[in-house]
Each structure stands twice: as structure tokens, then as C-alpha cells.
Design a protein around this nucleic acid. Structure first.
Lengths: 396, 396
DNA sequence: GTGAAAGCGCTAACAA
DNA sequence: TTGTTAGCGCTTTCAC
């Protein structure tokens, strides 16, 4: 076993009790909160050091040191085009010695670029935080932005007030563009964004636009994936196939429902029950289905979480999966799909890739040079739809 | 059922195939990736509009319109202290009419403040993304920062190269402070941060400092929580209590192990097996324990994910939980703890509150006014440790 | 190829 | 109370 630093006292360190000066009220989002007290360990420490750091060197300082003008230093720092080698070298050394780092604020002031992108996650519900979707998407975005030296400014919104704040921020010209997620029907965000006049790419097909607008978005092929799943169930010989929908104020849920209908046509309407992308919703819906259609022999759930709830209810009712009832989910969220009993057959979407693609699209749109490029196809992508794949495990 | 916008075509829209100009290589982090092709739906659209927006109005413009000086406008915009009411009103109206929004870059240039905080998540592994920990923490931070009008700049690091980039960014004076997570032993980040000389609060006790340094951090009472869990198992009459550790290069894992030892003393060393905070690690460790100590009657797992893996193996081996073997996890990650079979007894930590607290601490440290405040206690918190609570469900 | 000079939009002394 | 003025640190014409 590793050799590790440990509290040598052998006990939890000395504590002092401190009332929590909460800024916000409700923190408890998922259960009785722990006692509102904080254990503080103090020791001889000053405040988190507002260290009076020596003022950072400026272009001026570097220029002086290298014996050139500020303009020359600027040129070298920004790529060094049109500066003779020996000078470049001198400047480089000066930069090095002084530990010079350009002041971004000053730079932005003149260039009007920020090399920063806002990521807006409009999710008032707990759901985003209960699954890795969000994190994976972010990771993809982060990778792509980083590769292009852009920063990621995260804007999480929860209530109506937050919308105004986000609108102001976006309009404030802090960032070069925005990536927006989890839009719900009648979300005010799109309007705000349009008004802010800032280049934007959406994650998921926005519900308020059926191609009639010039919105750019990235989505999974929800409908196609759903079709594939349902076809698979039908191919298994199942005839009483049910669907537990997602939250129908999101297009992903609507599209999956459409895919289901593409295959099943006008099946028994009792076989389609509304869920909300959560395990609890899945349980509720599954019970309803078993109530009304005891002969159900397959279930296509709008996502894996929903499917996990459905599985639990099926087990409760003594139905064997997949023998009695076959079940398919959507997402292929590993921590869920692999841990269910039995492991879940599901439709995979490449979430991280979606994020990466959104960033790439936005960055491409931002690139001035591209605006005048290749005159052949004036058509830029409005919607990019990533393919899905059926992942077979044990549940269907 | 809701009335919803749908693709009226009844089918997935027309697609065009486009090769994916991937910037990064390996995207596949969790399985065979879907075919590297993208379905693009095009329509008559220009590039993501690099809209030549009319130049935003400046202070100057507002001043002209209101018939006052720039200074006065500035005063009004920044709180309006010391400006007579009628003028305030005139300026307000001008701001309104022109839709004026201050240019942040210009402001930062002179104030040297950015009202932005960097959140650094140093997690090369998949783990952070497989559980809601990260998202919850982020949410807490976001709330607190928002309440104080600060922006959240997210810095995700994955490889060694990323460290340099982050160091540069932090040193570049883009942000007023940093919040840092998921440090591992021998992580180069703390060094970089120290060199950047930027106020920082850590999430989780940093491994390289046993209170000998002036580091500020927020942590859960991992050790105390572990003790409570193990005591509970002992109270249940269990005598052969095993522990599956977390990744021991993180202090949270070490502290939980210490807590276990506080109660169990020098138990059979075979009962302590190293895990890695993942379900797979939990499975592996559980098998090993059953192999070497078939008489095991209780397991304290380093987190819920680990516990879920252990549960699966126990079931596989026909051990009943909790009758034959009682199991306790750590974290109380609802999507996991409530979905296991049986539902998991576990140690809850308030993750969102941790995030909120980190932000609060950092902001407090940044606040100039506080540096000269109350001379009574010069001691600022070095470590803030949040309490944990045992949540009883069915597994123990 | 290099330097001088003019701002980018704002805040903060200082005067009035 | 209000206005005037001098920069913050950088990029970018425009001369040389």
C-alpha cells in the first residue's frame, strides 16, 4: 500500500463551530440537509493572501529591456511576423527574463476579441445534475475550445431572474459567442440571445424553430435512434410495445416519441405514457402501463434513467426481463446502463462528440477568414445531427 | 398530451454526409465510438452570422445624450453615489435609450478586477464525469459566484500539457482567484498556482500539506463519516468488517481509511483492499475479499459507486445483503444509492454546500474591505470541514 | 523592418 | 456635486 501523508494525530483535527452565513436560502435539493453548522479548523493564518504581488511587467518594460520599441515587442509576442531574427531573439529573451504575460483586458480593448465562449446551461431541474450528460458535453466543449485557445465561461441558470442576468452578460460583449443547452419549450433564452446579437450554437434542436429560422444546432438522431430501438423490439417478435416518453417540453423527447410512432404507427394509445427522464417517472409510467396493458411485452424508455425505473417495477411485479418484457433505453449512460439488472440494451449517442462539434461549429462561424472563403456553397450547416447506435446488452 | 412542434415531414430531414474534421484524436473514452460521420442538414443559411452589429454605444455617447460628462455617467452606472437625483434620472434614461452596456475590458484595464473566478478541475480520469459530484459542486459554486456578480471560468485539465496552459492562464491575470479540485498526490498544479500568486481555495484537503502551510480548503469530514459508518456496522454486531478503499492518491480515500482504522484498529489486513472509487474497482476488491475472507459479514466501501460494484459481486456469490453481509457506501449519490438493490445505506456529504462554501471563502478573501476588519481574530480558516450524516437505507 | 503616435472605453484624481 | 484630465496596457496605422 502506498506511503501517504496522514493526520498524525490519529483523530479528526481540532474544530471550531461556526454558523453558516448562507447567502442563498434553499440549498436542500435532494433531502433533509445536514445540520447547518460548519467545522472550521483554524490555525495561524492570514486571510487568503491578497498578496501584494509585484506589478506584472508591461510591454513597455519588455521593450526597454530588449532595447526596442513597444510595437516591435507586440509584433514578436503576436507571432513575430515581419521582425528580423536577431531582434526576435532579443525580445524573446526579455519576455522570458521578465516573465511577461500580456494583459488580456488591454488587448481585448483594442482587438474587440475575447477568446472566450459562454456555455449556457438552462436547466432549472435537478436532472442535468443527476446524470453525466452535462459533464461529458462540457468535456467535449472544453477540449475543442482549449485546442483553439479559447476560454470557457460557464453560465448556469436556474430561475427566471437568471435569464435576465444571462441576457445582460451575453449582451455585455464579454464573450465572442455562446453555446446553449437544454432549451425547453417557451424558454425566453433564445429571444434574449437573439437580441444580444451574439453568434450562438444550440445543443439539441430548439423547439421553437422547425427549420424556418437560421438557427445552428447539434443534435443526436433521436428519431432515427428510437426507430432502430423499436424495430429491434419488433424484430424480437414483440407485438405489445410500450413507450415511456421523456419530458415532452424538450425536443429530444418529442423526437424519440416520433421515432416510436414511425415504427409502431397508431398503436394502442394506452401503450404510450408520459415520463420525465427520471427513474421515478419511469416507475410511475411502468406501473400505469402494467395496469392498463398487462399484456405488454416490450418497453422503449426515453432514456436509461427512465428504463432503470421501469426495470425495478417490472421486477417488483415478477416480470422477467427480457423473457416476459424486453426493455430498451436511450443514451447509454454507462454508470446506469451497465449497472442495471439485467444490463440495459440501449441507444448510444456520443455526447462528448456533440459538445466538441458545437464548439467547432461556433468557432468556425467566428473565424473572420472563413466568411469570405469558398464561394461554392453559401449554405452553412443549420443542423448537425449525430448518428446513434444500438448497444445490445441483456435487457432486449 | 401536449401540443408540440414536430417535424411535419414525418421523417428525419434530408441529410448530407460530412467527414468529421476531428481536432483531437482519442475521443472514445468509454467504448467503441459510433461511425465517424456526421449527418448535416443544410438549408439556405449564411455562416453563423458574424453579424456586423452596430458598434455598441460608449460612455461618451451616453454622456452626450444626457448632456453631462463621462465622469457623471460613470458614477451613475457604478451606483450613482454623489450625483443629484435629476441628473441620475437623465443619465438612466440615456443609458436605457441607447441600450448602453459597459465594456468590461476597458473597465478591467483600469480597475484591475475581473469579477471572474477560475474553477480548475484536475481530473484526468473518467471518474468525475461518471458521477454527479462534479456537477453538484459546480452548481454550488455558480450560485455563490452569481450572487456576488462574479463569472465562472471553467478550466478542465486532462493531461500534463494542460497543466502548463492552466498555469499560464492563472498567471495571466484573467481572473481574480481560483477554486481547485480533485488534486492528486504529486499533482504539479499547487506549485503552478503558488507561482501564479493568485488567491486560491482548494476542494478537498490537499495531500501535500498537513496544516504546515497556509492553504485554504473545504472538505467533508471524511474521517468522521467513515468512523460513523464503521461504528454502525459494529453496532449491528458485525465482527468481520472489510473496507474497500478509494484511490489512495487522494486524501478523501486516505481519510476514510483512517476513519475505518480508528474504529477497527488493526483488523485483519486482508479485510482492507484497495479500490479506486469505481464500480469495477469495487467488484474486483469484493471478489478478493470473498476469496481471502469468506467469513466477512460487513463492508464499508469508500464511495457509493464502489459499493454498487461490491453489491453486485455479493449477489453473484449468493450472499444476502444485509442478512449475510451488511454494506455501507459514502457520498449518498442519489442516482446510485437509491437505485441499488437493496438501496444503499451510506454517508451523506453536502456536495453543493461544499462548492458554495469554497466560493464564499474565496470571495471573502478577495474582498479588500475585509482585510482590515475586526482585529480580534487574525486567524482565518485554513480548513473548513463540513459534517457528514449517516443515511440508513436497506443495505446495513 | 522598425519606431512614433494615436487611440480602444473606462475610472479616478484633482479642480472647479 | 460636477467636469477635466490623465492614464490603464495594448494594437495598429503611418512615417521613416
Amino acid at each position: 500500500m502506498l506511503n501517504l501523508p496522514r493526520n498524525t494525530t490519529g483523530r479528526t483535527p481540532i474544530f471550531a463551530l461556526l454558523p453558516c452565513p448562507c447567502v442563498h436560502g434553499e440549498s436542500a435539493l435532494m433531502a433533509p440537509p445536514p445540520p447547518r453548522a460548519i467545522l472550521i479548523r483554524t490555525h495561524r493564518t492570514r486571510s487568503p493572501e491578497v498578496t501584494d504581488t509585484a506589478p506584472r511587467p508591461t510591454l513597455e518594460a519588455v521593450a526597454a529591456r530588449a532595447g526596442v520599441s513597444r510595437a516591435t515587442v507586440s509584433r514578436v509576442v503576436n507571432g513575430g511576423d515581419g521582425v528580423r531574427e536577431p531582434l526576435v531573439e532579443r525580445v524573446r529573451r526579455a519576455v522570458e527574463e521578465l516573465g511577461y504575460v500580456p494583459n488580456q483586458a488591454a488587448r481585448s480593448l483594442v482587438t474587440r476579441r475575447h477568446d472566450a465562449i459562454a456555455v449556457v446551461v438552462a436547466e432549472p431541474e435537478t436532472r442535468v445534475f443527476a446524470d453525466p450528460f452535462f459533464a461529458l458535453q462540457l468535456r467535449g466543449i472544453s477540449k475543442e475550445l482549449t485546442a483553439h485557445d479559447n476560454q470557457l465561461v460557464l453560465l448556469l441558470t436556474e430561475g427566471r431572474d437568471d435569464h435576465a442576468r444571462v441576457g445582460r452578460y451575453l449582451a455585455g460583449g464579454h464573450v465572442d459567442g455562446a453555446l446553449v443547452f437544454s432549451l425547453h419549450l417557451e424558454d425566453p433564452l433564445p429571444g434574449l440571445i437573439q437580441r444580444a446579437g451574439i453568434p450562438t450554437v444550440f445543443g439539441g434542436r430548439p423547439g421553437w424553430s422547425d427549420g424556418s429560422q437560421d438557427v445552428v444546432y447539434v443534435d443526436s438522431d433521436n428519431r432515427g435512434g428510437a426507430r432502430e430501438a423499436v424495430r429491434h423490439l419488433v424484430g424480437l417478435g414483440r407485438t405489445r410495445v410500450a413507450h415511456i416518453t421523456g419530458a415532452l417540453d424538450q425536443t429530444s423527447a418529442v423526437d424519440r416519441l416520433d421515432g416510436f410512432r414511425d415504427v409502431m404507427g397508431d398503436a394502442d394509445p394506452k401503450l404510450v405514457v408520459q415520463g420525465d427522464f427520471t427513474p421515478a417517472g419511469g416507475e410511475r409510467a411502468m406501473r400505469e402501463i402494467l395496469d392498463h396493458c398487462p399484456d405488454v411485452d416490450a418497453v422503449f424508455a426515453a432514456n436509461d434513467l427512465t428504463a432503470s425505473g421501469a426495470l425495478r417495477v417490472l421486477r417488483e411485479h415478477g416480470r422477467r426481463v427480457p423473457e416476459d418484457v424486453a426493455v430498451i433505453g436511450f443514451d447509454d449512460m454507462l454508470p446506469v446502463a451497465e449497472q442495471t439488472d439485467p444490463p440495459l440494451t440501449t441507444v448510444r449517442q456520443d455526447i462528448e462528440e456533440m459538445g466538441r462539434l458545437m464548439a467547432r461549429l461556433l468557432l468556425r462561424g467566428l473565424d473572420r477568414s472563413s466568411s469570405s472563403s469558398g464561394g461554392d456553397a453559401g449554405a452553412a450547416p443549420a443542423g448537425v445531427v449525430l448518428p446513434t447506435t444500438l448497444v445490445r446488452r441483456a435487457s432486449a
